[in-house]
Design a protein around this nucleic acid. Sequence first.
DNA 1: ATAGGGTTAG
Length: 689
Amino acid sequence: MHHLAVDSFTIGELIILRTKPLKLNWSLVKSKTQNFISNLNPMWATQTQPSLFQPPLRSPHRSFSFKTLSSLKTPTINNYNHLIQTLCRRGNLKQALQLLPHEQNPTQRTYESLILACSSLNEPSLARVVHGHLVDDGFDQDPFLSTKLIDMYSHFGSVEDARNVFEKTSDKTIFVWNALLRALALADEGEEAISLCRQMGMLGMPLDSFTYSYGLKACVASSSSHDLAERRVRQIHGHALRHGFKTRVHVATTLIDCYAKLGSLPYSRRVFDGMTERNVVTWSAMIACYASERPFDALMLFQEMMMREPDTVPNSVTMVSVLQACAGLSALGQGKLIHAYILRRGLEAVVSVFNALIAMYAKCGNLETGRQVFDTIKCQRDVVSWNSMIAGYGIHGFGREALHLFEEMIDKGVSPSPITFVSVLGACSHAGLVQEGKRIFASMSREFGIIPRAEHYACMVDILGRAGQLDEAEKIVEDMRVEPGPTVWGSLLGACRIHGEVKRAEKACARLFELEPLNAGNYILLADIYASAKMWEEVSRIKRILEGKGLQKVPGCSWIEVKKKLYSFVSVDEMNPRIEQLHALIVRLVTEMKETGYVPNTKVVLYDLDQEEKERILLGHSEKLALAFGLINSGKGQVIRITKNLRLCEDCHTVTKFISKFANREILVRDVNRFHHFRDGVCSCLDYW
DNA sequence: ATAGGGTTAG
């Protein structure tokens, strides 16, 4: 039984593998996973908790009309304020403004209503009129109203006006300072935000936790370099420590998020561990930090919260991150448990939860369920809902369906976002729809007013490159109106790999190595291209460069969920307790294949070894191990679902096609880019991926 | 009177 435990834990290790070489502490692995497995039960789904979505109790507004006002003999200022408030709430700002001159003495309250109304009704021009009246009435020195004005201008995106209000207010309360700081942080004016903090310190202003939170956000959002941002965050962090704000829940939660955004997850965790008081937001922040990079840890942490903190009730935001983690792991069983829990908690009415569910099912290989969720949505769909579903069709290779859904979305009057086009173009690329891709790309700016960004060009390069139109792909790169980033060159390099274009690959790599000197993947891809061309000296040259930089090829890892448990396999997994059984099965199947004319595709092995050695390495590929495990441990009619951390290797692709026919099994493999549906000897990608 | 965490793509 503990063998099972070991396997499920290696999933957790897998995520670490992306940055660190594989090193397992077996006793730790055992103890941790026992725990994890014993907790893997549908308990979450049976815990009923009160719905968060009971409508808030609010007393109905008593409205006040002109009629009521004129019926009064001597209307007081409060009566006027009441009327103005009613008009503002109804969105009748102009009428409310007309009342102003008739009023002898507007109060702070009058202006507060008007300012808030301008913000929520998005009326920047009326906002200036209100501001003018406010100054005329002598409220320009009112710090309370200055705070509101700064918030309002910040909402309209005009930092300039916010700054002016700040300058003109002589009685600068902490609210006024914080308001400007927040405005600057939102507008990505980090430099100025920092100097504002410094100014506050020099004036001897006592900073509060709002100041720290806004200040930290400003550092991350906008510092010109990563190092600078990190230095600043540490500076503010230190300041907070010295002033006893270390454990204040808002400040610490912001710190967790900031360190994660700077790529220092261990620091985030250290802050989290050091907190004396944590709430849902704190836990959600930490889970969210883990969700994309280390989904297994995200699930473990969620588990811990559910077990150890009965008073901390997860909300929709928590669930979105947990679903994201399930999606990252392809953990369909876990995802279903979470779905059940969401239904019990009544959280399914939140659009972001719905969207995350769609994405989770699609990424776990259950596209139909994703579509069902999409069709039976309990709230208004937003653009993300459409994007998620379109992207879902894309990764499964259903390009036509993706295009169809895109058209439906347009027909329904939903305006597409830049991400919509990444999804649609991505779908075209996976399905080889070159003409359609070109058409969509052209329509982007012409019909929808969305200027293509680097990632859109990358999609186009991908579409053309895969289809073998490399000249045209290269032309796109040359004609780009934005700086071609690593994604664009990476797409070109990927296309060169498919079509064995050594010269062009070298050209793309020249730029890529400059832009991403530490991305091992680019070097590996080039070595791969050299190996295909049998340029072994070049292959070893690239390998020497990698070694010199201390970089390593990310080890291949595949995993499979059987009866709600995850089992993972690394390539040439000699420590795996059942390696002999799996190996025997693979050898048997491959021998069978050889009789039908199969020749092992040894060119995917990057080592210059003899044929026999190469074949041995091929047999040990992690996806083959996972497949063998799936064949042994699942029922005849069940679909085998495998996930891989890298791109599916060509030899494994061939072998899996054969097995799907030979063993008469439906096999679903998700690699980094897309899904492959194997059935009856054919793959849904039609060998084009 | 002001907070802190989340969804889609690559």
